[in-house]
Design a protein around this nucleic acid. Structure first.
Lengths: 166, 166
DNA sequence: TATTGTTATACTCTATAACTATA
DNA sequence: TATAGTTATAGAGTATAACAATA
């Protein structure tokens, strides 16, 4: 009936979504103080970071890229616009809410990056920079793979629900 | 002023907490339907999974292992006990709330595992089983590394706040 | 008619502090 | 006096559906 506790834990650690959650929690705990310092929430920080590296993005793209549902994004746009961190920009398709980072927003982004850099460097040094890079590559590739399987399943569902579509 | 969009995205993907979040989102989307099917929330599933692989655990351990804050855990205990999935077990230290999985809980756990196994196998096959294993190892090691740095920072804080301690 | 985003709503989780019980 | 967990409470995110505006 008994297994060793060590073996139990090892099995638990082989659960992919749980491992991703726990690792995110640990790394976030390291960097969140720098976000808190400037009264940003983590989702707001993701939006700021996404916009800092693009000229302008629409709500849909930000929603997917930052893992934020549209209703939350609406509130975040409002809060960040009020603080002057982002601004709405014109778009040929008037349905789209397109935003860009402001100078204020960029200054804040770069300040947070600068302040957190020592801790990032410490983490990279302790873990090994090349292993960190390998991990990031694996993460992004697994995301694409999982996304592909989800899309595949949804196509099958659509075919089942609407067989007349073809 | 302009960078290519491809380069932008690559930089964004090098952000560790964001990469962990997005990958978790993609893999969770693949497995969450099986959880939903049995009216479990993801935190409840983590608790069930942790208990399925241990004889009994106290609230503190579950809180850390499942990344659930104590107040949430209190509610989750209540809900899962009501459904007969877990039960409280005696503990020498009467302050501790110690719980174990019930037969009902174990049956549910194994049913979910069984139902989701085909999708897990598909994911592992598409990504490469050995790469998945490498990823899990890297995740768990990075978690330990980040945790170590957080602990280290907290010790320094303690020394600053309470210098008389030594 | 389909798509984009907002509003409305209910629920859950996050996070802190204050409190109770036990050690 | 310290620790474990619960309660209380405020805030934010999660998730769906319904809606308005635009294509």
């Amino acid at each position: 009936m008994h297994q060793t506790p060590e073996r139990d834990l090892r099995k638990f650690e082989k659960s992919l979504p749980i491992a991703l959650l726990r690792t995110r929690e640990a790394t976030t705990r390291l960097f969140k103080p720098f976000i808190d310092l400037h009264d940003l929430t983590m989702p707001q920080w993701r939006v700021l970071r996404a916009l800092a590296e693009a000229d302008a993005l629409d709500a849909r793209t930000l929603s997917e890229r930052c893992v934020i549902l549209p209703p939350s994004l609406t509130r975040i746009f409002r809060a960040m616009t009020l603080r002057g961190l982002i601004r709405q920009v014109e778009c040929a398709d008037a349905r789209r809410h397109m935003v860009a980072i402001t100078d204020t927003g960029r200054a804040l982004f770069e300040q947070v990056l600068q302040e957190s850099e020592p801790d990032y460097t410490r983490l990279a040094a302790a873990f090994g920079p090349e292993r960190l890079d390998m991990l990031l590559d694996l993460l992004n590739e697994l995301r694409d793979t999982a996304q592909g399987l989800v899309d595949q399943s949804q196509q099958q569902d659509t075919r089942k629900v609407m067989p007349g579509r073809r």
